[in-house]
């Protein structure tokens, strides 16, 4: 879907993006993670055709983005990190305006914008002036706007910044919803835990370099050797350990009074199956989760080599 090949970007002598090669398959929700100044925004702006790379190329659905700007623009919806709205413009007119910039007819726009506003939960705000909307509403409106031309790829630059927890949850649901509709989504953030809940793959960037990228499980496995899972239970500890050991790639690390810690290389589906088997065998599972702080540790570990070592050892015990 989105293929970035050996992308470089220099600002004068400063190199903001250094030899970035990345492939994001169709239907992925890809999280782009990195500390401030890592080069996320720069990369995203290049992908959206707002900047020329110093070197490298970008292919979207096999079409070169540099030479086929026109086609590419129809395929990308972009939600920038900071954006403003116009005064004295109503929500419906805002959607109209952007729709007509894609040369859509007013009938097409009316239909699609109704659906989109429904999707982002702003149906009752159609006649409201956009500058009076709350921050979270503006953010959702901006997502709806980015989808007006039905792009295959949606790119969001830190859509969660400045949102309260509730608005974040709504945003997450919206993105998952869009993913289920078959959109490919790229989202940047420096808050990892949020991304881990919705993204199925991530890329970690630091100082312009892509440190690691791939499916979340693979990335974790690459860095930690395996994934950590904690199962909390009330009863049936022995059965649970026995079942866990039956699965390939599972290593039980510790067994406590009410919890089992294990490292594994399983897919989500396999985990679900394993837990299901446990429950079917009368183990009273009260919960299971990835080891707390895992992603933060991962983040620290890959973005800061020295500090990362300490954190990693802490998380392993």
């Amino acid at each position: 879907m989105l293929q970035i090949n050996h992308l470089y970007k220099n600002y004068g002598k400063f190199r903001a993006v250094n030899d970035l090669t990345l492939h994001i398959p169709q239907g992925d929700l890809f999280g782009f993670v990195g500390p401030n100044g890592a080069g996320k925004t720069t990369t995203i702006r290049i992908v959206c055709g707002l900047m020329v790379p110093t070197a490298g190329n970008i292919m979207i659905n096999g079409v070169d983005a540099m030479t086929h700007q026109k086609e590419i623009k129809k395929q990308i919806g972009y939600v920038p990190d900071f954006f403003g709205v116009y005064d004295n413009l109503k929500v419906r007119e805002y959607m109209d305006f952007y729709g007509s910039m894609y040369r859509m007819t007013s009938r097409e726009i009316a239909k699609i914008s109704d659906d989109l506003l429904e999707l982002v939960n702003l149906s009752d705000k159609k006649e409201v002036y956009v500058d009076t909307l709350s921050r979270g509403m503006k953010q959702r409106l901006c997502v709806a706007r980015a989808l007006i031309h039905n792009p295959a790829l949606l790119v969001l630059d830190e859509p969660n910044s400045g949102l309260d927890p509730r608005a974040r949850v709504e945003m997450k649901e919206l993105l998952l919803n869009l993913k289920s509709m078959g959109k490919t989504i790229v989202i940047s953030s420096h808050i990892l835990s949020e991304l881990s809940e919705m993204c199925n793959s991530i890329g970690i960037m630091d100082h312009g370099n892509l440190v690691t990228a791939g499916r979340i499980e693979d990335v974790m496995e690459n860095v930690f050797g395996s994934n950590q899972l904690i199962i909390t239970l009330d009863d049936g500890r022995e059965t649970a350990v026995r079942i866990a050991n039956e699965y390939a790639g599972v290593k039980v690390n510790s067994v406590g009074e009410h919890e089992i810690k294990l490292s594994h290389t399983m897919s989500k589906a396999e985990i679900a199956k394993m837990i299901g088997t446990m429950i079917a065998n009368d183990v009273v599972v009260t919960g299971f989760h990835k080891q707390e702080g895992d992603l933060e540790t991962l983040f620290m570990r890959v973005t800061n080599q020295e500090g990362g070592q300490e954190n990693a050892t802490q998380s392993n015990c």
């Binding site: 707002l50 990308i76 972009y78 910039m101 894609y102 031309h149």
Partner: peptide, 8 residues
């Protein structure tokens, strides 16, 4: 920026 990412 948004304007420049549209078909305009």
């Amino acid at each position: 920026d948004i304007m420049m990412t549209t078909s305009m």
